[in-house]
Amino acid sequence: MTSILETENSDNQTQKEITLIENILKKTGPSYTKYILGIGSVLTACLTIWLGLFITPKDEHLGNTVRLLYVHPPVAWAALYLAFGTTTLASLLWLWPKTRSYFWDKIAGASAEIGVLYLALTLVTGSIWGRTTWGVWWTWDARLTLTAVLLVLYIAYLAIRQLDGSDKTKANRNAITALFAAIDVPIVHFSVLWWNTLHQTASVLTPGLHLTVPLSMGLTMGLGFLCTTLIWGWMMKVRYDIELLKVVDSEIELQRAIMQRRNEP
């Protein structure tokens, strides 16, 4: 037998859930931010490809191979400094009590996932470039080896994020793992200075920021970086939407299970 009070309670609960879903659907639906990031990504990508493949000059020594300059460094910067930088910063913001919020944990995870994609692309495009320039697909110099280590570390971070626990335990564990993985980022950056490597030293992020490339190449690289940044921004937004939807979905699922149990005789 159900009392009137109980029916009303469950009706209230249902209304609450409906509002919750409505809000999340609105929040994860179309928005100006997503349109601007999405359209900007596509436009800068097209422009970079056009300039990179057809407009910029060949290099005196490398010939057409130099065109990988507009893909490899932008993807590498976006992975190391933008994506993993965001993961590190967000993890710190979680760990610092004043800014502690699950938002930061989700941001850290989303950015690391995109970073892993970008870093894998860095290794693949670098390998192709190495084959044409150095004559080998791979060599165990410090830059290459440490970059491979970095990829392993962040894949491990993503795996550790999947481990179970209370929300707080998970977020703490994630943040500490992220900080551990981040140690390798500056080591990769300075590896070309600290050790003898086959990989060349920086051409834009040099100590005095002196470009070692002609301006047209430098600008196209910059455009490539803007492109990988916009793509990162768009992916971050959609990836974060997915996290929000997952939270509401599991909440609704939980409520449904409780209701079902209550209705059982």
Binding site: G52, L53, G63, N64, T65, V71, L121, R131
Partner: peptide, 13 residues
């Protein structure tokens, strides 16, 4: 254009 460059761009895209 050389095949390596095309391969690199294609994989990225």
């Amino acid at each position: 254009m050389n095949a390596y460059v095309v391969a690199g761009y294609t994989i990225a895209i």
